[in-house]
Amino acid sequence: MADPLKLLNITYNYSDLSGVSRISFEVNSGDFTLIVGKTGAGKTTLLKLISLEIVPFSGEIILEKMRSSEIKPRLLPKWRRRIGIIYQNFRLLNDRSALENVRLAAVCERNLPGRPKRRALKALARVGLSHKVHSFPNELSTGEQQRIAIARAIVNEPFLLLADEPVSNLDEETAVEIIELLQKLNQAGTTMLVATHQPERFTSYYSNTLKLDSGRLVEH
């Protein structure tokens, strides 16, 4: 499928006027794209715009033929089910086990075959955490927590995975493991859009780089 994600002249400003301005790019199916830039360059804002957590002031995002300007609130879930999100701080619920964390995301998508629990177990197996499904996040290492977050992001089989600084909180060894996991998912067909201020950690594997500076796309 050509151009599964397309951003056309996207602008968004926060009250302090930071944000992103006139951003346009395309991501092709199967790409592993890095969004690089310093802290405050607009990387997270861009990911939030793609997931429609915030709505662009102007411009349009096209996701698999769906247009952001035409998306009604009741269709937002449909948009978001096509995207998986990995957060910098994992955003795991500490009062539930790894399985329950992943299952929570799984129940949001009813159109996939298999029961949510089964799909959650499968996703945990894919990230190598089958043996820790009943562990709670605070019983796990940061690397394992990030793996749960990745399992949660892929449980609904999204075509696009957004990762916001997925390795910035991890030590070198764990970061390599997580990057390898992301690469494996990409090789299996998931399109990747990874925001990072440490592109050197990904040198071994990526197809495109988007460089942001003060909310503008300076290199494509």
């Binding site: 879930p77 999100i85 949001c108």
Partner: peptide
Amino acid sequence: DEFIQIVTLSGGTSWM
């Protein structure tokens, strides 16, 4: 709040 965020960003409906 975290639960609500996770549900909505994972494609959960408003009712969920």
